[in-house]
Amino acid sequence: MDQKQGGVDTAGGHRAWILAALALVCIGLEIVVHLFFRTAIGYTHIFYILLVLSALWYYRKALLVAGGLVCAMVATSLVVGDLSWATAIRAAMFCIITWVVASISEERDRAKAELQVKKEEAEKRHYALVGYLSEATLRLKAPLETLRENLASMRRQIDLGVDTEDMKTMLSVQIAHLEQIIENFRELNQEIVEERDDIPQEFGEFLTR
């Protein structure tokens, strides 16, 4: 668990560094290309790498990055004096693309998390079923084998002319064993019926009768 947590922290750290480096590149391009070379064409496509990665990793928080880039672009446009509809459309595209990618990424991860929860629930049910089958075998099948052998032994004893009182006692023991086995079966079913909501009431009553 700690290792997993450590792994997530390391990945988060790497992501932050990658985004910081990309942000520096974008600001650098804004200053060098737009401010010094006075051209507003082409270089802004690089911005999308930063925006898409931010949206993938940090969902809608990436809109803050988009807002920052829009501010930087508008500020340089004001300095350069080329503020136009093209600048406004570019700024809107930054925000729209970021929002769309963030929404898709968020939805994908939410579905992934839901799937994981369902998978864990299915695994839990599977282990519960294995546990039930194992305990049922242990407390029903194995004792029945002992009982069968007891009865077989008693039959052999009859052939040898066993005392009637002893036979009655042994029969009482087998009856006691059987009564308990039936009770065990009912208890095991009771546990399952109480645990599962999807068993219809009629079947629940039948199983625990």
């Binding site: 242990l138 407390r139 004792p143 002992t146 064993h177």
Partner: peptide, 12 residues
């Protein structure tokens, strides 16, 4: 004698 018979009366 024996653990198996005890399993009839008490859980594992």
């Amino acid at each position: 004698d024996s653990i198996s018979t005890m399993l009839i009366y008490i859980p594992s």
